[in-house]
Nucleic acid binder design. Structure first.
Lengths: 233, 233
DNA sequence: AGGCTTTTGTGAACGTGTGCACAAAGCTGA
DNA sequence: TCAGCTTTGTGCACACGTTCACAAAAGCCT
């Protein structure tokens, strides 16, 4: 379930505040979901609540952590040290939860060799060796879009089966490989879509009539692969 | 529909390669979805395909762009110029699609005043004025988690109804305000979950039996608000 | 000890989104 | 002009996730 990390976050906050138990109602509110949904999700990992009382916070934190595999170490490699890769390398949110940034890689020899976040950036040539030696289990792709599929193929060939893709491309991977995609432009476009609907309903028809057959009138084009370029420094 | 941006991206790539028409089958493959689903999505904006031929690429690009509201200008403000905010400010993917970074803001007076990506970072004190003067329509929150709700409240009070949240918090907003969340830790945790299941089925039971009532044994805690701190420079 | 309150766990209805399969529609070539 | 081929648009069934509502269970108070 994709909601477990959400619950874990809310529970951890409660744990720090010393709250011993929590009801499904309270926890659901903190996580922003329906209480029945939360109870069903939790019952999926086995019933560990007490009727009339609620759930033991510490115990539930432990259970979810174990279910998510957060009790073990997950070495992560970041490929493509542009703006985004640079930011992720310095991002503190990884280390705290078993996700250890094990390696940074870039195709540009001017970038490889630099020290970023206390690590030396390695060159793409060493990818396979690094994955093998450091037992990397998750690859994070922050390259420009045209390079993403190639990097992905090499990661898969090296044995990686979990990829987090920030490049605006649909990656083709064989069965058994998990890819999750984070696309900032798409998020913004969805917001813009809803924003437009709001202002449209404020004044005017929801779907203004369209000129039927105009050809060759492309609006602002989606120029494809505009991910962060390699950062100057 | 959240898939329209995906189609738009695929169509734009075809457009650049000079492809005049495309069938639902081809486009679906490029976008990584089912062809029937794609046809249904497109029929939702009005039937603009030709049976036996396919869809006119340029025309479809125009239609989707208009439906998404990409034919107009969307000024974006980025609040919290830490690692992530810095990267986003330099990110080229915004400008190309009607999303113009109109303002950068930070609560730290040492950060305000700096020039980043050709813009001067403003102080949070000026938030309301900036939103009003620059007609900001989308707010991007890249602050540490504890500050996110406060920033969110101020954005909403200033009239913003679309927010993209990178802070690891569930934001409470009134009816009518859209919030989309991007949480890197959660994406990684979901990957770790699946990765664990894979190795678990390789050798051993899928769900190893649990010690029933151990209290006070929290595993690696989710330390909550570990978003990028404000960047040194 | 027993009834009352609280809260879990879950059965069942509901709504939504997905995918199949096919008829209608348009193009092509003879 | 007409048969045949291709591809769209959509009715229908199905599966999934969500939500309601309630019975069973646990604690608490008198």
């Amino acid at each position: 379930m994709a909601r477990l990390p959400l619950y874990l976050r809310a529970l951890s906050a409660l744990s720090e505040r010393g709250v011993p138990t929590v009801s499904s109602e309270e926890l659901a509110a903190a996580a922003g979901v329906n209480s029945a949904k939360l109870r069903k999700d939790l019952s999926y990992l086995g019933s560990y609540g007490t009727r009339g009382v609620g759930y033991d916070v510490e115990y539930l934190v432990y259970q979810i952590s174990r279910e998510l595999g957060l009790t073990q170490d997950w070495p992560v490699a970041i490929i493509g040290i542009g703006n985004l890769g640079h930011a992720l390398a310095n991002y503190g949110g990884f280390a705290s939860r078993g996700f250890r940034v094990a390696a940074l890689l870039d195709a540009d020899r001017a970038v490889a060799g630099q020290r970023i976040a206390g690590m030396v950036v390695r060159h793409m040539d060493d990818l396979e060796q690094i994955v093998r030696d450091d037992r990397v289990s998750i690859g994070v792709i922050t390259t420009p879009a045209p390079a993403a599929q190639g990097v992905c193929d090499r990661l898969v060939a090296a044995g990686i089966t979990s990829i987090l893709n920030f490049a605006p491309t649909v990656l083709a991977v064989p069965e058994g490989v998990d890819v999750r995609k984070v696309d900032l432009s798409i998020e913004l476009q969805i917001l813009a879509f809803h924003e437009q609907r709001k202002s449209a309903t404020d004044a005017g028809p929801t779907l203004p009539p369209t000129a039927p057959p105009p050809a060759g009138t492309a609006a602002r084009g989606d120029r494809g692969g505009d991910l962060p370029e390699v950062m100057p420094a």
